[in-house]
Each structure stands twice: as structure tokens, then as C-alpha cells.
């Protein structure tokens, strides 16, 4: 069912939903950007629709809502430990189609990989409902069409900001609420059908490209800052950390914190022995996971083509271009057979 709502009625809905839900959306924070004078768009809790950034792409993804940057797994005293709760409220996430698809990929890792369910992730993930923001036009760095992630399914509400109000396609039990505040409307869903950036995913990537010179080129450019993985909606790696509280050394917690295969120490073992010390090898490892390794396990690619990694790289390294270069190398290899 579709409804039209003006800003006040949409806020009426948000107010009612807020009783039982925490609402997260992309918010523009003026002057908080990576470069001076730029703004940062990231996920925050909101109370009114006017706070939502509908136009710009968010720099960080909504993954931190279900996979927090730092998450306590256990609290302990000397003798006991306890598991923190996540509260009773549901979670509403305003995000774009590629982001909904990214959650599906996080689900594979946290809920299915290796046959064990990550209970911390599941507890948060089960509460999530998506309010999808329609992409009116593609951003320059997006390549969702190439990745097949331009369409989203599994949402509760699909929103088009139009004529000072909001046109909403509503599914499931929320229809009653939207009916109360909005007027009936017609809506056909629109998805991005073409991006400026296009990638061609190689059908298979074999190890012949592993030793190729392109990785040496990335080795000299990439500074291993990890921004590409931090902003990526599908990067899911973490490191365990135990800490004691300074004011009470008998109490502490075990946490997990985001980790990045691009940053030093990711593979470091006792004795300081590490693998993939070369930044180019890390680039290759990340790329292989995003467009090949994950697909071998789950049948589709991990990368959703959101382009955030390209937006944030301080060295102007383009992941989309790297994919195309590997694809070209593979095609060359086939021709030379």
C-alpha cells in the first residue's frame, strides 16, 4: 500500500514508532568531514524526519547499528561473568537499497559462516526494520547496477522524498499506522538502472593474477589506513580485547572492536610474525574476498558497489577500477591460452 505524508504527519508516525523503537538515519554533521570545511554524513539516532539527510551519500554505513564499532561481549568480576542485554526496543534503519543488500551479506558471515550463529549480532539484527530511501539518481562512485544490488527487498517502508512530503510504499503491519497519518497514493518503485561507474566482475579469478605487477603499484600508493574497510557496509572483521577497569581492577570486560585486513597487525602472531606485510597484497586479499572468495561460499558477491571505499580513500585509490583491471587481466589470460 502507498501513502502520501507531509513532514508533520511523517513526524507523527516517527513519534509513535519511537515509543517502541530506536530510529537511525543518515545525518549531516556540518564541519565534521575528513577535510576542513567539509561535512560528515553518518548514522545517528533521530527523532524527526527533518534531521535525515536524503540527498547525500553517507560516508559511514549503517552496519554499526548491528555490529557496533566496540561491543561488550562479557562483563566480569574475579569470579563471575555476565552478558549485557540489548534492550527491548525495536530498531528502524533509514538506508538505501545497497545498504539493505549489505545487511544480507553481514548475515551470511555472522549467522551462517561455519555453521555457528553469532548471538550478539542476531539479537540486534532481529530487531531491525528497513525504511528504504529511494535513490533519485546515482552518485558518481556507485556501481550497484554492476553488483546487482540496486534493488532492495525485505523492507517495511520505501520512501521517496517528493513535493515537500514523502511518498511511501508500506508493507506489513505498519500500514495501519501510515493509514492513520497519511493519505492513500499511487507509487511505483524506482531503482537506479544505470551508474556512471561500471565494473565487470571476472567469472573466476585464479592465482595467476596474484603475482602481477598491479599489486606492487597499490603497494606504493596505499598507506594501510583502513578507511576503505571502516566505511564498507560489508566488512565484518573484529578483534577481541580484554580490559580491566582502571578504578576497579577486579572488574573488566571482553569486547570486540572493528578490525581491518588493510591495517598493520591484522595477521600478527606470537613472535611478531605476520602475513601480507605488503600493502599491495592486502589490497589483493580484500578485493578477492569482495568479488570472489565470498561468492564461492555463498553464491553471490560480498561487495554491494556502494562506492564508499572510493569516496574515502586519501590516496584516491579506486576499488572499482581495481576490479576492472583484474577482470582485464583474467580476460587477457583466457585469450593467451
Amino acid at each position: 500500500m502507498a501513502y502520501w505524508l507531509d513532514m508533520d504527519s511523517f513526524n507523527g508516525i516517527l513519534k509513535e514508532l519511537s515509543a517502541d523503537n530506536v530510529v537511525y538515519a543518515p545525518v549531516k554533521m556540518t564541519g565534521k568531514g575528513a577535510f576542513s570545511g567539509t561535512d560528515l554524513v553518518a548514522y545517528r539516532e533521530i527523532s524527526g524526519v527533518e534531521q535525515i539527510e536524503f540527498k547525500e551519500k553517507s560516508r559511514f554505513s549503517p552496519k554499526e547499528i548491528v555490529f557496533p564499532i566496540t561491543q561488550t561481549l562479557l562483563y566480569f568480576t574475579e569470579e563471575e561473568y555476565a552478558v549485557p542485554g540489548t534492550g527491548e526496543k525495536g530498531i528502524i534503519v533509514f538506508c538505501r537499497p545497497c545498504d539493505v543488500n549489505a545487511f544480507k551479506r553481514l548475515d551470511e558471515i555472522f549467522l551462517r559462516n561455519g555453521g555457528r550463529v553469532d548471538s550478539y549480532y542476531r539479537e540486534l539484527r532481529e530487531k531491525v526494520r528497513f525504511f528504504v530511501i529511494e535513490c533519485a539518481e546515482s552518485f558518481d562512485s556507485c556501481f550497484c547496477v554492476s553488483m546487482g544490488t540496486n534493488r532492495a527487498d525485505g523492507y517495511d517502508v520505501f520512501i521517496r522524498a517528493a513535493g515537500g512530503g514523502f511518498l511511501c510504499d508500506v508493507r506489513g503491519d505498519l500500514a495501519t499506522l501510515f493509514e492513520k497519518f497519511g493519505g492513500p497514493a499511487e507509487m511505483s518503485l524506482r531503482f537506479i538502472e544505470e551508474n556512471k561507474t561500471k565494473v565487470s566482475i571476472p567469472e573466476s579469478v585464479d592465482q595467476s593474477v596474484f603475482g602481477h605487477g598491479i599489486w606492487r603499484e597499490y603497494a606504493s600508493r596505499c598507506i594501510a589506513c583502513g578507511r576503505c574497510t571502516v566505511s564498507c557496509p560489508t566488512c565484518s572483521c573484529f578483534t577481541m580485547q580484554d580490559i580491566f577497569y582502571e578504578d576497579n581492577p577486579n572488574r573488566g570486560e571482553r569486547r570486540r572492536v572493528w578490525a581491518s585486513c588493510m591495517i598493520d597487525g591484522f595477521t600478527a602472531m606470537a613472535g611478531g610474525h605476520g602475513f601480507r606485510e605488503d600493502h599491495g597484497d592486502r589490497m589483493r586479499f580484500k578485493l578477492m574476498h569482495k568479488i570472489s572468495d565470498f561468492r564461492k561460499r555463498f553464491g553471490y558477491n560480498m561487495c554491494v558497489g556502494c562506492g564508499r571505499c572510493d569516496d574515502v580513500c586519501p590516496e584516491y585509490i579506486s576499488f572499482a577500477r581495481a576490479i576492472n583491471r583484474v577482470d582485464a587481466l583474467m580476460k587477457e589470460a583466457v585469450e593467451n591460452v
Binding site: 559462516n113 578490525a259 602472531m269
Partner: peptide
């Protein structure tokens, strides 16, 4: 194989080599 491992259950990503999770 020995690799850095933080979870042992295919979640943390540290032990991955190529397409294989050493812990799995």
C-alpha cells in the same frame, strides 16, 4: 596451520587465507 585467530568460529576474519578460514 597457525594463524592469528580471535573467534575460532568463522566470524572475526583474522585467520582467512585466500578463500579458506583456518579456524573452520
Amino acid at each position: 596451520f597457525e594463524r592469528k585467530m580471535c573467534c575460532g568460529i568463522g566470524k572475526c576474519g583474522h585467520c582467512k587465507i585466500d578463500g579458506a578460514y583456518v579456524c573452520l
